Computed example of a mutant assay.
Amino acid sequence: MASDHQASKQQAAGSKIVIFEQENFQGRCHELNATCHNLKEAGLEKVGSILVYSGPWVGYEQPNCKGEQFVFEKGEYPRWDAWTNSRRSDCVWAFRPVKVVSRMLWGLLGRRDGDSQDHKIVLYENPSFTGKKIEIIDDDVPSFYAHGYQEKVSSVRVQSGTWVGYQYPGYRGYQYLFEKGDYKDSADFGAQQPQIQSVRRIRDMQWHQRGAFHPAS
């Protein structure tokens, strides 16, 4: 029977992203199949456009996987505003593949569909998982307000799946990657302010041909 680690290794082995210096996939380029802590060491001076052949991936504003986060799924990103609308920075200097164990891979793990939810996340008002909370299971939520939750988000517990949270409704603003585990305060997920107002699931589009996320134009 395959393990979670083996399934993650199989997915990572198939991860592929190509970084171009110029917009619209022009200029020098560099292909990645694994974590890159500093694109400058690969000989690139800037990032103008990105092609994701298989993923997903997360990019970082600063080397060594620090700073603002940008989530990339399978598809084309011809210029910087295709992957962010936070307006704070157009720099991306580090990348790593995101581990996603999809429902289709459960067969490799010897699991039945009823063993657990595909995606489950709980977001809490206060640090250390206290205060009011909103629990989301196998769904994308473009607005917490529409679900009656108007509080800040200071801690997060991901029980299954991989998620991306956004500062504002409609999947806008700063992005925060949530992988399985506990985030006791907003600093743990890289937020300067405890503000998340929408969240969605991340899927490996190599396996999920339907349900791909398409950012609004």
Rank of each mutant, 00 (worst) to 15 (best):
A216S: 11
A82K: 06
A212Y: 04
G148T: 00
L123I: 04
V199A: 09
G190N: 13
Q26E: 12
S186Y: 11
P56M: 04
R103S: 07
H30G: 02
I202T: 02
V153Q: 04
V52F: 03
Q117N: 01
N33L: 06
W80N: 14
T162C: 12
K133Y: 05
E21I: 03
V153G: 03
D81P: 06
G131Y: 07
V122H: 02
I50V: 15
A7C: 15
Y145D: 01
S143T: 00
V100T: 05
P56H: 09
A42S: 05
P194D: 09
R201V: 06
N38E: 10
G161C: 01
R88L: 03
A187Q: 05
L51E: 10
Y60I: 11
E135C: 13
G107N: 08
F70M: 01
F213K: 01
Q6W: 07
K99E: 06
E31N: 09
A212R: 09
S116C: 10
S54C: 13
N38Q: 00
D4P: 15
G181D: 11
Y145T: 00
Y171A: 14
A34N: 08
E45P: 09
A13T: 11
W93H: 05
G110S: 06
R96G: 02
Q209I: 15
P63S: 00
V47F: 00
Y183W: 13
E61I: 02
W83G: 07
Q11N: 11
Y166V: 05
S86K: 03
I136V: 14
H5M: 02
G165I: 04
S160I: 02
Y149P: 01
V52L: 02
A94L: 01
I136G: 11
T130K: 15
R203Q: 12
I17Y: 08
K16P: 06
S155R: 12
F213E: 03
F178Q: 00
K40Y: 01
L32E: 10
S8I: 14
V92P: 13
C36S: 04
T162F: 02
L177C: 12
H119V: 04
C91W: 08
S89V: 08
H5R: 14
A82M: 05
A94R: 07
S49T: 10
P97T: 12
P215W: 06
A13Y: 13
E31T: 14
H30P: 02
Y124N: 07
R111N: 00
I19F: 00
S154Q: 13
E31I: 06
R157I: 01
V199F: 11
I136E: 11
G67N: 13
T162S: 15
D140M: 15
V58C: 15
R87M: 07
S49I: 07
K120H: 08
I136M: 12
A12H: 03
K132P: 08
W207A: 06
K46H: 03
V141K: 13
T35F: 08
H30R: 11
E45M: 07
K99C: 12
G59H: 05
Q69E: 12
D182V: 07
G161L: 11
E135I: 04
Q11F: 14
K46D: 04
